[in-house]
């Protein structure tokens, strides 16, 4: 068993690549991504799990990265918004967000998209009501909600 420690040198697996990163035990996965790995696509809105802007996939499941210690993410697969597109080809959810204008300022958008990708793969986008409920952990203060539903519906249909 590892010894208790305040400082860690971790290997984080993000978007298929391994990154060595030195963190404090206190460092959240969100801060590690943004400030240590400079993967700033994942956004900080509240740092308290209350807005969804920091949503990433952890072993394929959507989580809020602000409520996870970076040390606890070691050995798991983290997928961020930067890991969705293949080169210049947008992921279908990303393309649908652009097409349906499912954002304004764009700050909640990476979190919305990661949440949508998660919801689709979980099979929870069967109806508009279900999409609305499933996307309710991601606040959009610009109020793009109905466009977000249209985008998710569309992307789910294209993927399914």
């Amino acid at each position: 068993m590892p010894e208790p420690s305040q400082n860690f040198s971790l290997t984080l697996r993000v978007n298929g690549a391994e990154h060595r990163v030195a963190v404090d035990a206190r460092t959240t996965l969100l801060d590690a991504l943004r400030d240590r790995l400079h993967l700033t696509g994942t956004k900080k809105g509240c740092a308290l799990g209350q807005c969804g802007a920091c949503t990433v996939l952890l072993d394929g499941r959507r989580v809020v990265s602000c409520l996870m210690l970076a040390v606890m993410a070691e050995g798991r697969q983290v997928t961020t918004i930067e890991g969705l597109a293949r080169g210049d080809d947008l992921h279908p959810v990303q393309a649908a967000f652009v097409e349906h204008d499912a954002f304004q300022c764009g700050y909640c958008t990476p979190g919305q998209i990661m949440s949508a990708v998660g919801a689709i793969s979980e099979g929870r986008t069967g109806s508009d009501d279900e999409i609305r409920e499933q996307m309710s952990g991601n606040l959009c203060r610009c109020g793009a909600y109905t466009n977000i539903v249209a985008a998710v519906r569309d992307a789910a249909a294209r993927e399914g």
Binding site: G41, I81, Q94, F97, V98, G106, P110
Partner: peptide, 8 residues
Amino acid sequence: GPAKVTGH
């Protein structure tokens, strides 16, 4: 849009 949806 592309910049915003890719996190760039």
